[in-house]
Design a binder for these strands. Structure first.
Lengths: 236, 236
DNA sequence: CCTAGGCAATAAGTATGACTTTACAAGGGC
DNA sequence: GCCCTTGTAAAGTCATACTTATTGCCTAGG
């Protein structure tokens, strides 16, 4: 990613911190980092700046670089999301799936209000592609179309924050396929709902688009949670 | 914020970029920054690293520091949110209000499932405080309690991403009061809904908590949009 | 004995200059 | 006209010296 040395060190240290090595309160000293990674002061400091920007650490004079409590980490930073996925994939996916459940219905409603004709047409095309690939049993192509569909909805919502969640949704969708949740032939009801959403967006029916999307993500979340095991229920 | 020179320069350059000065594609050169702000290479480079981490810029060898298209900016980074609020407060608030509308009902549902007894009790206490301050007509105290209430719900959801949105919600809530949207005495129906949510969370009734929260944010969004004027989502 | 205030040590912050790497672009060979 | 070489501009890295602010200690005063 980040080209050179800087990127590699950020990656390694960031992973360690998000993995819970160096628990909150730990102080890392810059000259320690220099020796450990064999880097110069400048690079070490830039690494700290990058991690500080994700709110993983905070640097204080006369003290060092202290690891912040994880409640303060920028949970929406794509880099951190990636690190946390590699640390505890299931927990992070539960978090992401829940976020998706919350956002997509409202995004669909907004898309029905704001989508341009082009965007709506594109959406319909993607829905048709889902029908075709589902019928053909081409799972890989189907998932690609699925991701593109949800990305298009989020983008057409006109809300930049919604739009940026397409990677989150993609991550959840792609993971589902890799774990046999989705049968070799996608469930017909899901395909139908995608088509309905596309049609509602085209016709500007926000309420129905929202309702259809809610049905879709509810089903998806149900399956995801089942696959992930118990939601870590407080009382048994 | 950021202690010294670095923080000031990040703040100034970041504001300029998010304001649309330096449109996407613009190249800023590091030595140019050094002269402009009277800073050394180290500081300039760290500033670039920080802005790059927010995805506002991307630095390429032999070219310079290029401003990225705004669709790629980390719209969830608190710093960027703050900058965008100061650039176009209304547009950003519309975005944030919509996000809130999406997330809070699901967060309430999750809170009903996951909240500890302490958290539930705290929530009920905050609801009672809202009743008291509303009755007394103490608007400032009421808004504080309102923010604390929503923060508590988001926190009790057990979803770190939801929890982190408390600042977003706080921003929307506090802004509403400053613009006469909320009458000097808060609407009784809103107060009642807060109480209902608290009670549902305590009793573990996720479905009703979600429904009550949906009613609450729907009303709030309606008022906010009316106050902000037409959605006018046409512009880029 | 306990508090206030100053002193010194420490680690981050800033500055500077030399050197390396890489990607773009122009010019020459096929 | 196309591809490959080569020069160069700008970021990337390194080493070092110096500045600043904070913390913890130690002494003086109550």
């Amino acid at each position: 990613m980040g080209g050179g040395l800087h990127g590699k060190v950020v990656e390694e240290l960031g992973r360690e911190i998000s993995a819970g090595l160096h628990p909150p309160g730990t102080v890392l000293r810059i000259d320690e980092m220099e020796r450990r990674f064999g880097i110069s002061r400048s690079v070490a400091r830039e690494v700290v700046r990058t991690l500080a920007s994700i709110q993983l650490v905070m640097s204080r004079k006369r003290v060092g670089v202290v690891v912040r409590p994880r409640a303060e980490w920028n949970a929406f930073d794509p880099v951190l999301i990636r690190w946390l996925l590699s640390v505890d994939r299931e927990a992070q996916l539960r978090t992401l799936a829940e976020l998706r459940t919350a956002v997509e219905p409202v995004a669909a409603s907004a898309a029905a209000r704001n989508a341009s004709d082009e965007q709506a047409a594109h959406l319909v095309g993607l829905a048709e592609r889902m029908v075709a690939t589902a019928r053909a049993g081409d799972l890989a192509q189907f998932v690609d179309a699925d991701c593109a569909f949800h990305r298009a909805v989020l983008g057409a919502s006109g809300n930049p924050m919604f739009a940026q969640l397409h990677e989150v949704v993609g991550e959840v969708l792609r993971w589902r396929t890799g774990h046999g949740l989705m049968p070799s032939h996608p469930r017909p009801v899901a395909v139908r709902l995608h088509c309905e959403i596309a049609e509602c967006v085209r016709s500007g029916d926000g309420a129905r688009a929202e309702e259809a999307m809610r049905e879709l993500v509810a089903e998806a979340l149900e399956g995801t949670i089942a696959l992930l095991g118990e939601p870590a229920a407080a009382e048994s």
